[in-house]
Every structure is written in structure tokens, then in C-alpha cells.
């Protein structure tokens, strides 16, 4: 499993969006800290989605902090992927993993 190279972030705090910060950690785990305007109804779904996107990109050893402003699934996905690509300075994008 891969680590991310450095701390990175993507997104905004605006309505319908999500602000996502990621950081490499020493432990082999996906640590998720979520603050969501729809926590009660969708909190667990969002956490599942985040974990899934991270695994699809072959990442582990990561801490994720999300401020969710009622973002659709694909918005969270887009922001998280953007953050991970930024963290790894990835120029060669593997589109089939996104």
C-alpha cells in the first residue's frame, strides 16, 4: 500500500461543497475526521465513500479531515481525489482509478 507524500487539501467551505485536508501518518490506517451538515443522515455513508475512494487509489497511512457542506457523493470524490493527486504531485493520472 502507498503512502501520500505530503499534506494537501482541496475544495471549499461553500454550500454543496466539501473542504478536504489529508496528511500522511505513521500508522497503516485510514483515519477519517468528518464534520458534516448532514452528519445524522449520511455521516456513515460519507465515511464509507471516503474510505472507498482512498482504497481505490491504493493509498493507506492517511489522515483525512473533511468539512462537508452537504456535498453530493461525486463532489466529495472529486475533492478527495484532487487532494491525493496534489499530495503526490501526480502528473500522470490513472483515470481508470478515478
Amino acid at each position: 500500500m502507498n503512502k501520500i507524500k505530503k499534506r494537501a487539501y482541496a475544495g471549499t467551505l461553500e454550500s454543496s461543497d466539501a473542504f478536504i485536508e489529508i496528511e500522511p501518518i505513521e500508522e497503516d490506517e485510514i483515519r477519517i475526521e468528518l464534520q458534516s451538515s448532514v452528519e445524522e443522515m449520511y455521516g456513515d455513508d460519507i465515511r464509507d465513500l471516503i474510505a472507498k475512494v482512498i482504497k481505490e487509489m491504493d493509498i493507506s497511512y492517511i489522515s483525512v479531515r473533511v468539512q462537508d457542506k452537504g456535498a453530493l457523493d461525486y463532489v466529495i470524490k472529486a475533492r478527495l481525489q484532487a487532494a491525493i493527486l496534489r499530495a503526490n504531485d501526480d502528473k500522470k493520472i490513472k483515470w481508470d482509478k478515478l
Binding site: 482541496a10 463532489v75 470524490k77 472529486a78 484532487a82 478515478l98
Partner: peptide
């Protein structure tokens, strides 16, 4: 640019 590209990439498929 990178983040907007990903956003549009996913929106188009939604």
C-alpha cells in the same frame, strides 16, 4: 484547474 477538472469529470458522468 486540477480540482475543477476532476469535479467536471465526475459531474459529466452523474
Amino acid at each position: 484547474k486540477d480540482s475543477a477538472r476532476l469535479m467536471v469529470y465526475h459531474a459529466l458522468q452523474h
